[in-house]
Design a protein around this nucleic acid. Sequence first.
DNA 1: TAGGGGAACTTGTACAGACAAGGCCAGACC
DNA 2: GGTCTGGCCTTGTCTGTACAAGTTCCCCTA
Lengths: 242, 242
Amino acid sequence: MAARYEQIAAELREAILTGVHPVGSQLPSEAELAARHAAARGTVRQAVAILAAEGLIGSRQGARRIVLGGERSQSFAELHSFAQWARSKGHAVGGEVLAQRRRPAGAAESARLGTAEVLEVLRLRTLEGEPVLLERTVYASWIASAVEELPPDCESVTQALYDKVGLVFAYGEHLIDAVAAGSEDARLLGVRRGSPLLRQRRITTTQEGRPVEWSDDRYRAGSVAFSIRNSIGANPLTRLAL
Amino acid sequence: MAARYEQIAAELREAILTGVHPVGSQLPSEAELAARHAAARGTVRQAVAILAAEGLIGSRQGARRIVLGGERSQSFAELHSFAQWARSKGHAVGGEVLAQRRRPAGAAESARLGTAEVLEVLRLRTLEGEPVLLERTVYASWIASAVEELPPDCESVTQALYDKVGLVFAYGEHLIDAVAAGSEDARLLGVRRGSPLLRQRRITTTQEGRPVEWSDDRYRAGSVAFSIRNSIGANPLTRLAL
DNA sequence: TAGGGGAACTTGTACAGACAAGGCCAGACC
DNA sequence: GGTCTGGCCTTGTCTGTACAAGTTCCCCTA
């Protein structure tokens, strides 16, 4: 059973998406929402805070909340797991492991993952049958054997590892930039060498903050984009000079 | 005077950054923090919620909060304004307007900005004297004259418009992908045609949700990256199929 | 008619208390 | 020794109240 504030948030989201509260219009006041849902104002505030964090609504002290945008997305899983994202959007997702081997960790990998040995995996992912993503992932040694036992065409590694060993990918740090396709990238993704790729490098940790994997994902240009809504109040995305 | 919970958040952030609470360690409990700051538990929870949203700490019901990462960044301004971001990081920022003209809005622009006429501006931005960013921005007509009066080498348009007419850029929606440099892009950024660029398209609105500008920003590869921390709980960044 | 003042409304901040849910650990038990 | 259980601790959820701060809009006045 979801928390009360999550139910209220879901109802409000639904109301916005179905046009009950069109873009640009004002939301009911907290007091009214509280009365309508028979909840305390604090609970309603938790609900609208979720929508604000999603970028769906904006708020300023003294004025009613405003509907900023329409359709929105959900969660961490969407950014972390290609398969979960694709499936939730109704895309046909595929993939296969092209190479997989254990090797000693380099200095940077050892520092990031905290292990002396790593499992290196090269995966090609497809969307609607077209190759769009090349994943070069390095797993910490303590999870390596579980990864090795997965079938090569496993769609969602995230899901599989959760089912298998109860591993939860809880936190991620991502670095997004553009790079030119190397010769291997070009061959596997079916593009010309030097053509632009969208690169997402990420390190993922468990709930306890223990690093699990370090990955370099390269998307064929024109296949995938990242979307962010932000506001003066809060946003986690930043720019970095290289 | 900042709010109480912001002060507590700032103190905690400082304590994490200076190593009082090292990465991987546990934070004091809410009860203890409340006692230490002579605040209610709810206030402390608001403070730690900020740090959690920044990706600095993680939390799970029942267990103490864990320090996940070190240095972090701040704000919306950082993503919105190139100049404000660069200055806050201590980079030498420059820029100039290469072209500027009024013209009728296309259908897509009219839908996005809600005006029939727009002001189109082409700006080249430099970091440490090197050209890194090409901005193609389209402003809504109601702000056009204020933009036209800015000096061509104005560093921060955001700042200038705030000082001039009190305009606040409050909400933004961003789309990030990779593209190949066109011939104009290549000439102005000093790269070869077809080389990868990191593209950030964004639409920005006022506090009231009124659209102000629509921009296509292209970064030279290797000069700038975007960084995101996220968690199971919340994150605003998502992937989009194209 | 244009502008100022102010009341009513709305969101932001803060406090206090209560219970639920889940993690952690030590001691008991097999 | 290993395992399980129960109690304690910590975070999550929810309620209710009070006041501060900012917005909106109407009415009165010049």
